[in-house]
Design a protein around this nucleic acid. Structure first.
Lengths: 219, 219
DNA sequence: ACCTGAACACCGTTCAAGT
DNA sequence: ACCTGAACACCGTTCAAGT
């Protein structure tokens, strides 16, 4: 009644699949950030050899893109009532929050343009809201990119591991700016760095929406 | 008449200095991109050991920031005549061009906030142009960040090594979008990806300026 | 104070060989 | 077709030891 040798106490490891690899990568990301998501660690987690992953994934960049698309499923594309404008800001803030929660992923979203199914859903939702607001289609088409760029760039900036020290340095540089050589910096002073990040993002998204709605594309 | 042993044909290697290290890093960058700027290669170029660099530079991120600030000296902060708006777009386009020329550097500018002297000059120039245009100071203070974010994010996106393939994939995804599930994407189609990058950047900067000038900050 | 050699603890990717 | 071990060609950073 001994089990056959290929049937151990812990059941045989599941067969490798692309989805399984991506799911394991998401687990690693949640556990310890994108820095943990390396081919070697991933292979270890899946109890296989690093080289085996290359059957399912072209390279690390593609893997990171797949991880992002999987996480994109958690973005709320249809938030409650309110004017279209507020809902648009809401969707984009939700997207930014997702990226902020996973340092490093935002940077990879900027370098390798996402093109997964969830990303397409996000773009569709943004276009629908812009159309609801009566934004001319051509401006909406180009505007979506700019909105997503601001959201992504904001996430990259704030998902900076050692930002505290950087920020102190920047604050000191601004504070010590000479009114002679840098009059505008000196005059504005702390206001250049004032305000909670969320307030700045919300303001940024609103000014973007205003600009997109009222700036004609070049002919 | 033999030269003393410490005086070889090739003169003794120059003493290590922070500036010398940064200059060598810029050379490596120009020669082969940011991927070449590693502590080991840099040490080899300077004919020293990797560990020696850590006397002058805290880590690789700080080194990259110093390289960026050195290059920032080439941005034209005071382009010819024309309305303030066009000059503002010109300065930011020049900054973007610099980042586009050095793939990887833009990403590091986003992750570690620059705070070098040249960067401060750039911010001062942007603030001066916004003031010239009569933009309220509070909006200018926050707006500068958004302008630089768009410029930097655009550079990161386009300084993608394998963008050609990514772009083809994205184009195919947009083309094949179902009018049932993604009506807006399907309707806009190719227009989502149309236009040369420079035209899109110029439009983006203009809409940003409009938005910054006409959107009140939250109270 | 500055510099070095050597080590520590890793990377992504390829490839011949096996099943 | 898929998986593996082993290798190739690297990384950043630290540290005891020298000068």
């Amino acid at each position: 009644m001994t089990p056959p040798p290929n049937r151990r106490e812990r059941p045989a490891k599941p067969a490798l699949t692309r989805n399984g690899i991506v799911a394991a990568a998401v687990d690693l990301l949640r556990a310890g950030g994108l820095r943990q998501v390396t081919t070697r660690r991933l292979a270890e987690a899946l109890d296989t050899a690093p080289a085996s992953l290359y059957v399912y994934v072209r390279n690390t960049a593609e893997l990171h893109a797949a991880v992002l698309d999987a996480l994109l499923g958690t973005v709320d594309l249809d938030p409650g009532g309110g004017p279209w404008r507020d809902r648009l800001v809401e969707v984009l803030t939700s997207y930014t929050r997702l990226l902020l929660a996973h340092p490093g992923l935002a940077a990879s979203a900027l370098v390798a343009r996402p093109s997964g199914p969830r990303y397409l859903n996000l773009v569709e939702a943004l276009l629908a809201l812009l159309a609801e607001g009566g934004v001319p289609p051509g401006q909406a088409a180009w505007g979506v990119d700019v909105l997503l760029q601001l959201a992504t760039a904001t996430a990259v900036e704030h998902s900076n591991g050692e930002s505290e020290e950087d920020w102190q340095t920047l604050a000191a540089v601004v504070r010590d700016a000479s009114p002679e050589t840098h009059p505008h910096v000196a005059a504005l002073g702390a206001d250049l760095l004032s305000g909670p990040p969320e307030a700045r993002l919300t303001w940024g998204l609103n000014l973007l929406i205003n600009g997109i709605a009222h700036t004609a594309r070049p002919s």
